[in-house]
Simulated scan of single mutants.
Amino acid sequence: MSRVLLIEDDHAVRTGLELALTRQGHAVDAAESGERGLELLRATPPDVVVLDLMLPGMDGFEICRRIRAGGDLPIIMLTARDDDIDVVAGLEAGADDYVVKPVRPRVLEARIRAVLRRSAAGPGNAAAPPVERHRDLTIDRAALVVVRHGEPVGLAPTELRLLLELSATPGRVLSRQQLLELVWDHDYLGDSRLVDACVQRLRAKIEDDSSAPVYIQTVRGFGYRFGPL
């Protein structure tokens, strides 16, 4: 049984999702505010956080940043609008995925199971060498450890999965849709913003200059590839 921390200020939405997720076999801790959510997180660490962006007081963006700064806990955000501003800002704050309101419980359940699979999954490509060295970057697929300049790099599960998939075949271009299927388990026409935001976060952690990336290279009009070639 997985434990879900649900942070949602709307009483009706919170109660409905709590009931639905409980029926689906999850243990749910529900909070009406970001501050209360952080208290519950410290008291009983969850397996995944479902976080509304529009919260009173401390908003969902700040909560997301605080959770991400403290570790690699999977985060799914709830947003009232499927627009670039809210979605991209939430993804850049560290969310792994998002669901647009009104939330369909089955969709949310599928996203929860997907992020939990990614969090628990091993290396993305068993055929790749267990330990790879690329200039100042070392990727240990067996231990799921990434080292840069001799120092461990803290990556969220989705960021790690993205790096493992890209680095498994250096020089090969993977489209955004391929990466959605490989990394996010989205087997439908998904949202490329998930990929782009995760690439930005990953570059910020492994590149010397994220504006001139060496490892995660953009192939305009196609997708991304892992370098250096």
Results as ranks from 00 to 15, higher is better:
V13C: 12
T15M: 12
R23S: 13
R23H: 12
G25E: 06
A27E: 15
D29N: 12
A30C: 03
A31I: 10
E32N: 11
L38Q: 12
L40N: 01
L41F: 03
T44D: 11
V48E: 02
L53V: 14
M54D: 10
L55S: 05
G57K: 07
F61V: 13
D72V: 01
L73A: 06
P74A: 09
I75Q: 08
L78I: 11
A80I: 08
R81Y: 03
R81L: 10
I85Y: 15
D86H: 14
D86M: 12
A89S: 15
E92Y: 02
E92F: 02
Y98D: 02
V99W: 03
V103Y: 04
R104F: 12
L108N: 09
E109P: 00
A110L: 10
A110M: 10
R113H: 13
R113W: 05
R113L: 15
R117K: 14
R118G: 08
P123A: 14
N125M: 08
N125C: 13
N125E: 15
E132Y: 03
E132K: 12
D136C: 03
I139C: 00
I139M: 05
G150P: 08
G150D: 11
P152N: 07
V153M: 04
G154N: 13
G154F: 05
L155W: 02
S167I: 07
G171A: 06
G171E: 12
V173A: 13
Q177V: 05
Q178C: 03
E181P: 05
W184I: 00
H186L: 15
L189V: 14
G190L: 03
D191V: 01
L194H: 02
V195D: 09
D196L: 04
D196H: 00
K205G: 05
I206S: 07
I206Q: 07
S210G: 01
T218V: 13
G221S: 08
G223D: 04
Y224Q: 01
F226M: 10
G227A: 03
